Simulated scan of single mutants.
Amino acid sequence: GSPTDCVYLSLNALYQEGFMPDLIVSGINIGSNMGEDISYSGTASAAMEGVLHGIPSIAISQVLQDKNYFGFDFELAKQSIYKIAKKILNHTYPLDAREFLNINIPQISPKDCKGFKITELGIRAYGNDAHVHRNPRGEEYYWLGLHPLAWNERENNETSDFEATKNGYVSITPITLDFTARNRLRTLEDWISGGFNE
């Protein structure tokens, strides 16, 4: 099943009533989950499921500049998640209900890491990378290629998760499950009150 299903099943079938984990860590995902990518990330969705059940949760992902290169270890990721999990378990969870931490690890060694940076979700730049092919039987199929890790700069120049990892920081982004565009509620009220003239 999906990562969300795994969390749901473990909480509702494997744990005895009254006993819940102190922390859920989803990942490590091989490949980043930054910007709008979290909206369809299994790693992020498992952390979402955790906080829906009131359990502090973290999604952690390893940025890969080259998906075909695995000549590195996960040492920075291991050290980072250890420090963050220990801080949560020994102190407090820094977020409110229905909020989780989304962590992205740059593809560098621990000695080259500049530290942790609190970030916002960047604006992911997507391209068209769907290719049509034919198998040996002549049947058509589509192959979804890998989009390059590209993003657009924000006008207000705030630090994004993309910029942080590019500059050698571990990115920590607080994520809320409330997707409501609150600054548009009044706009929609005005729009709908105008009726539906055809």
Rank of each mutant, 00 (worst) to 15 (best):
S171E: 00
T180P: 02
N12F: 06
S39L: 05
A47Q: 03
A125W: 07
S109F: 07
T119R: 04
H131T: 14
S193W: 11
L149S: 07
S39R: 10
A59V: 06
F196A: 11
I172D: 02
I172S: 10
H147E: 06
L89W: 08
L95N: 09
K117T: 12
E120C: 11
L185Q: 15
T119W: 05
L101G: 11
W191R: 14
K86F: 04
Y15M: 02
V25Q: 03
D190C: 07
S39P: 01
E189N: 15
F196V: 13
E189V: 10
G194F: 07
R184F: 15
R124N: 14
E120L: 05
D37A: 09
L14F: 13
E155H: 00
Q79M: 11
I30T: 03
T187Q: 14
L95C: 09
L185H: 12
L121E: 01
I108D: 11
V25I: 15
E139I: 11
K67V: 03
A47V: 06
S80C: 09
L64Y: 04
T180E: 06
Y141C: 06
N33D: 08
L101P: 08
D129C: 05
I175Y: 02
L89P: 11
N128C: 08
N102M: 05
I28E: 01
S61I: 02
T180Q: 12
I88M: 12
A181G: 05
A130S: 05
Q107W: 07
S2T: 14
I24P: 01
I175W: 04
D66Q: 09
Y141V: 11
A59Y: 04
T159V: 12
L149G: 00
W151V: 10
P110K: 15
V7D: 04
I38D: 02
K117H: 12
E158H: 14
D112P: 04
N197D: 09
T4G: 03
P21L: 13
G138H: 04
G1I: 03
L146E: 15
G138W: 02
A97Q: 10
E198A: 13
K87T: 01
L177Q: 06
A46Q: 02
G194M: 12
N157M: 13
I175N: 01
C6M: 13
I38R: 05
K117W: 04
Y141D: 08
R184H: 10
V7H: 03
K86E: 04
R184G: 08
E198Q: 12
E49S: 01
L64R: 15
A77S: 13
G31A: 07
P110H: 15
I55S: 03
R137K: 15
I108H: 06
